[in-house]
Design a protein around this nucleic acid. Sequence first.
DNA 1: TGGTAGCTTGATAATGGTTACTATTATCGG
DNA 2: CCGATAATAGTAACCATTATCAAGCTACCA
Lengths: 129, 129
Amino acid sequence: MSTTKFSRQRESIKEYLRNTKEHPTADTIYMKIREKYPNISLGTVYRNLNLLVEHGEIIKLSTGNGSDRFDGNAAPHYHFICTECSAVEDLEIPEEVFDQLNELAGKGFSGKIEGSSTFFYGKCKNCLS
Amino acid sequence: MSTTKFSRQRESIKEYLRNTKEHPTADTIYMKIREKYPNISLGTVYRNLNLLVEHGEIIKLSTGNGSDRFDGNAAPHYHFICTECSAVEDLEIPEEVFDQLNELAGKGFSGKIEGSSTFFYGKCKNCLS
DNA sequence: TGGTAGCTTGATAATGGTTACTATTATCGG
DNA sequence: CCGATAATAGTAACCATTATCAAGCTACCA
């Protein structure tokens, strides 16, 4: 089996994601990390993002429109996507709401529901004006 | 402005989607329609699927894993995705749950929430055994 | 009917996001 | 410091989807 070795590139990606409220795409992350490591490769960014997702250190958001986005906050929480500017924001919703939802969904269903993923859509504060 | 003209290819796609409980990908639809129209082009399938989505006659499901899927049932309802075999199934959840969820999400949020999209994950009946 | 404006098609090229490949470089336990 | 092997940069390949365009259909009206 394979162990995971340290890499400064991966550390840099983790640090950037931990310190931003935005939900950047792989390409945005690539641009950012290049400021510090000018020859980092886009493939390296993707490889490390997937590694971090597998390790449960970050979350991948597949919004369906365009590129995936990444969230350095791995704790379960919910997201809003602006239909006008595509910005992604965190939402404050009590966690038990989703347990209830999952339970509700399981009624009359013959398989086993283990989780769910929700995106909320609308207009963000900026785009409302 | 542009009017929409009849096309037998589009009718065939609509008919197929109306009569299946599966949630096929564009490619699966392409394969199916080819049985009747052997020289239909994949581009034609995509173009018509997008048209039908715009007209609100079908629904596009961007699951995040692989290709988008399409649903001939345009009425709002929820979906379950098997994490093992990727099958997509319909779920029976009362519609007002949507509204409650969206309202809940809007509390303490400075933008305007207009809708949401949820996917439930787990193991389907077949994959449980 | 026949003509015609312009929507639709099939074929294929192009695009965009992501992953795979490979020679070289970095990490780390001994 | 060595050696094994994971990680990297650079680049090609991949896949789903969209764009392009000449030729074919549809709808509508004379």
